[in-house]
């Protein structure tokens, strides 16, 4: 294998770029899971976000307005799931699966109906990359880390903010309490339904932006059917892999991104592993992690359980 600075820099850059949608979505999912909601519907929400972003782009012609559209569509999509899950106490897994099927169909139909295939996308350069002055001149990491999409920088800041939020703020304490002991939170006068609902809205916004990133940054403003290709499910796995900790989730996303990147650039460094095996590796890693780490801490104890007052 060859390890010269340029290939390493390229590889790292690709890992981060490809890990970014995962990072955005899994940070969003993290918030839901911390309050006890396992949101399998992430895949569908991301699809709506991806569609919404392109729709917004065609409407306004402004890339950042498109990102906002993606966030908005993500929020609307999650609203449907949240009404079912947080308010009506529907089974989180079942709704998630149903919603993903629905989203695949709905976005495809909407693409047919409202998106113009001949649309000439404006330059997406300023959402795709921004060189941070001075830092982007650094060797290796300058190109790789400090010349990425501003959305990614935002995600990193959000990860740090989430970390502070859960660790040091009262609302963070409440969010965690709802996920670790919903009935205790209820008895303390906290509305479990409202907290879960708001957590899911955050998830929707983040996942919607993840979808926007996919279409705007990763595929030049074009929406194709099933553009997420399982990244939503992956993001759920990333949260678990990252042990519900924003910083670890960030690193896990880059790891998954690296596996993705290697399939394109593996040959450049003389790596002769078949791309599908590379893509498989993070999942194998996650499974091995389960076997090794085992029962120690398996996440918020209320995860997946609808809240019902009067049950212990």
């Amino acid at each position: 294998m060859v390890f010269d600075p340029i290939t390493i820099s390229l590889l790292l850059a690709a890992a981060i770029r490809l890990g970014a949608p995962m990072l955005l979505a899994s940070l969003g999912e993290l918030v839901s899971e911390r309050t006890g909601v396992l949101n399998i519907g992430l895949e569908g929400i991301m699809l709506f976000g991806a569609f919404g972003a392109v729709f917004g782009l065609q409407l306004t012609g402004m890339p950042y307005a498109a990102v906002a559209f993606g966030a908005l569509w993500g929020m609307l999509a999650v609203g449907v799931v949240a009404i079912a899950v947080a308010s009506l106490r529907a089974d989180q897994i079942v709704v998630g699966i149903g919603f993903n099927i629905l989203a695949l169909g709905a976005t495809s139909l909407l693409r047919d109906m409202v998106l113009s295939p001949a649309f000439q996308s404006p330059s997406l350069r300023n959402v795709s990359s921004y060189r941070i002055p001075y830092f982007s001149e650094l060797p290796i990491v300058g190109r790789a880390v400090f010349s990425q999409s501003p959305i990614l920088y935002g995600a990193v800041i959000v990860a740090i903010l989430f970390w502070i939020f859960f660790r040091h703020t009262r609302l963070g304490l409440i969010f965690r309490a709802v996920g670790e002991g919903a009935s205790a939170a209820d008895a303390a006068g906290i509305s479990v339904t409202n907290i879960r609902f708001s957590a899911m809205l955050v998830t929707g916004i983040m996942t919607g932006i993840a979808g926007a990133y996919l279409t705007l940054v990763a595929s030049g403003g074009v929406f194709v059917d099933n553009i997420t290709g399982g990244r939503g499910y992956l993001a759920v796995a990333v949260v678990i892999f990252g042990r519900w900790h924003p910083i670890w989730v960030m690193l896990a996303s880059i790891l998954f991104g690296a596996a993705d990147a290697l399939q394109y650039q593996g040959q450049a460094i003389g790596l002769s592993i078949s791309p599908p095996l590379l893509l498989m590796s993070p999942f194998l890693l996650a499974l091995i992690a389960w076997v090794l780490v085992g029962k120690s801490k398996t996440g918020p104890s209320e995860i997946g359980i609808p809240f019902l007052r009067g049950q212990k």
């Binding site: 449907v80 709704v95 149903g98 099927i101 629905l102 989203a103 695949l104 169909g105 139909l109």
Partner: peptide, 12 residues
Amino acid sequence: ALALIMTGLPII
């Protein structure tokens, strides 16, 4: 895609 919508909806 209509098929997907009509399978997803009743599940939800």
